[in-house]
Nucleic acid binder design. Structure first.
Lengths: 217, 217
DNA sequence: CCTCCGATGTAATCACTGCTTACATTTGAT
DNA sequence: ATCAAATGTAAGCAGTGATTACATCGGAGG
């Protein structure tokens, strides 16, 4: 039988794992990833400083759990955009992935930080994280293949090179923004708008079309 | 008169600032940025834990000094490639910047980490860091303008959008590699080679040419 | 019903961190 | 030669991740 949620003064918390993750997320959103401490998370869950270590081997394990949650939402965001897009044009599919990815990153910069880190979390130790990353990669590869088959993308372009380009491009956009580099590079427009325009430019280039003169940043 | 370098047992160190920076660099190269502590740097310089704070207001200031040194070498690397390139083709200039930037990042990943960080260092508080970044930006802007004037780059492309694209692209490549994302994205080739090929692809796209079928990654 | 054991909590402690304060030594200008 | 500024030390604060020994709870078997 599930313990009544109201019973909080009990010796055994009853739901510590979830509450610790929630507390950590709150901490991340309020003060950033660097400000996270398992002690503070424990305090917020109303528990002793050592308690979290009963459920997570170390801080990295806790952060990895947070990353898995975040990755789930990121994948969801991408898949929503993807399923709202017709199957007809592969380039439109790539655009959709970029939209979903960027939208989520813009809305969850600190969680993006967690997912992308390889020191804060144990990425390769998490099947969920590696699996969902690989899934997106395969979708992109398929879109590129179909794009080349249908003539929307030049067959002369190596699919792997195209993949790495596209990935580096949107990852670079996210990182630049999150790392605070937009100001130095004089991006005046709202980040979302600037990103959208620049993605458009990139997809146009992949399609082999010189863009038709969009407004500048 | 300069103090003899051999005189180390003296109460006053004589060259603490430089030696602390050197010790920090050593620490960064051995154990990574996250492993840097001012105490350890002090120990390596043979000085008490509090001594560094006489010369640097805080850890951030120390790291910023390290970043300024690193930025100097990065700028040098870019400028060397740039001056080894003729003025004739603006696209060749952009290629040169990418070469210099990527070569340095590949050779100094941890220092790249320091320069790119906005939590480890006080970027905007350092005229050197902001100035040299702005200098590169202006060179790129000029190359793009000349490229459009000479017809090598379509005038329909907004210079600012092109800038942000190029910057996001190479920054994304560096970050992906340094953050350890290349393995997940199945980049099998040596990083330098993969980057070079992909940059070639990008420049070709800017030039409006579909590339002529280079080998895949 | 009750006992006992594993799961889950606490208390106390360690080594380490960035940083501050009070004090000691040295150096160079007067 | 003196004295003040520069530069070092010693000691200590609060906060960190992590470990160990012990306390408490809850459910399964007798």
């Amino acid at each position: 039988m599930a313990k009544s949620p109201g019973t909080r003064a009990a010796y055994h918390h009853g739901n510590l794992v979830e509450e610790l993750i929630a507390a950590t997320i709150g901490l991340i959103e309020e003060k950033g990833v660097d400000a996270v401490s398992v002690r503070e998370a424990a305090k917020r869950a109303g528990v002793s400083p050592a308690a979290p270590f009963r459920h997570f081997a170390n801080k990295t394990a806790l952060m990895t759990a947070v990353a898995e949650q975040a990755m789930g939402r990121l994948t969801l965001s991408v898949q929503q955009e993807l399923s709202a897009t017709g199957d007809a044009d592969p380039l439109e599919g790539l655009r959709a992935i970029a939209r979903g990815y960027l939208a989520w990153a813009l809305a969850n910069p600190t969680h993006f930080d967690v997912i992308a880190s390889r020191t804060l979390i144990d990425f390769h130790g998490s099947p969920k994280l590696t699996g969902e990353t690989e899934a997106i990669r395969l979708v992109m590869l398929d879109l590129i293949a179909r794009g080349q088959a249908s003539g929307r993308i030049s067959p002369a372009l190596a699919p792997d090179a195209l993949m790495l380009s596209a990935r580096a491009f949107i990852y670079g956009l996210c990182r630049m923004w999150i790392d605070g580099h937009f100001t130095e590079w004089h991006v005046e427009k709202p980040a979302g708008q600037a990103m959208a325009e620049v993605v458009e430019l990139f997809i146009d280039m992949i399609g082999g079309n010189q863009p038709t003169g969009r407004p500048g940043l």
